[in-house]
Structures are given as structure tokens and as C-alpha cells.
Simulated scan of single mutants.
Amino acid sequence: MTSLLAFAGAAVLEIAGCFAFWAWLRLGHSALWLVPGGVALAGFATLLTLADSPLAGRAYAAYGGIYIAAALLWGWLVEGHRPDVWDVVGAVICLIGMAVILFAPRAMPA
């Protein structure tokens, strides 16, 4: 459960941080957007370290499913673009993959 909460928080921070750069470069907002964007990205990286995995690569792979679903929600709630059925199907597939990676029974390393 700790991983899921960390991943959810990390997704919000990563998307918000990247959106700050998007707002500056693509939407013409002030470069001051980069300050909270950088802080958000640092928070994102910090939260990923809380995942219940001894391997960074495995944690990042599992996080990908949460990120995809969160990005679609961001697009809907912040940018006003409602996901279509294929967005939802794709996100569900990714969340199933995340669950397999994160929750599969594994032997403890020697």
C-alpha cells in the first residue's frame, strides 16, 4: 500500500512539474513557473524512493502504470480533455501490468 500512495503522489508531482515546463515553453507563461516545477520534480523523485522494492528499475516500471492513469486524469481535470474509451482501456491494461510487477510473489534474494 505504501508503494501505491507513493506512486500516486509521485505521479501528481511529476505531471505538475512537467506541466510547469510545458506552460513556460508551450503556453508562453513566465519562467517563474520553473521554480515550483523544479520543486515538484524533486518531490516526485523523492517519493519514488518510498516504493516497496529493492530495485529502482522495478519500482519505476510499476510506477509507469500509475503515471499513465494519472496523466489521463490530469488531462481531463486540468486541461479539460475527457479520456475516450481507448484511453481508459489502455490505462487499465497498464494498471494490470503495474499490479503484476509490484505484487507478484517473489522469492527473497539470497
Rank of each mutant, 00 (worst) to 15 (best):
L47R: 07
Y60W: 05
L27A: 12
E14I: 05
M1F: 08
V85E: 11
L27Y: 06
P109Y: 00
L27R: 15
V92Q: 10
S3G: 07
G90C: 04
I96F: 08
G80W: 01
A107F: 06
L32D: 13
L25S: 14
G57S: 13
G43E: 08
L41W: 13
R82I: 02
A10D: 14
W33E: 09
L50V: 01
R26C: 06
V89Y: 03
V89D: 05
A23T: 06
L55R: 15
E79K: 08
W74T: 07
A10Q: 13
L25W: 12
L4P: 15
M1W: 08
G9N: 09
A59K: 11
L34I: 03
A107R: 15
F44D: 13
L25V: 09
L50N: 00
F7R: 05
A91C: 06
I68A: 11
G97F: 01
L50I: 00
Y67E: 10
S3V: 01
H81C: 01
V89Q: 03
P109T: 00
L13H: 12
A20T: 06
R58G: 02
F19Q: 12
I66T: 15
A99D: 02
L47N: 09
R26I: 02
A110Y: 06
A42L: 14
A16F: 13
D84K: 04
G38Y: 03
F44I: 00
G38K: 01
A42H: 09
A59Y: 06
G75R: 03
G64N: 02
S3Y: 04
R82G: 04
G64Y: 00
A8Y: 11
A23G: 08
S30F: 06
L41H: 12
L95K: 08
A71R: 10
L32Y: 14
W76K: 05
D52K: 06
F19L: 03
L47M: 11
A104C: 06
L95D: 07
A56W: 13
M1I: 04
F103T: 01
L72I: 12
A107D: 14
P36G: 00
L102F: 00
W86R: 11
M1S: 15
G38F: 01
R26N: 09
D52A: 05
D84T: 03
T2R: 13
L73A: 15
G90I: 02
L32G: 12
R26Y: 08
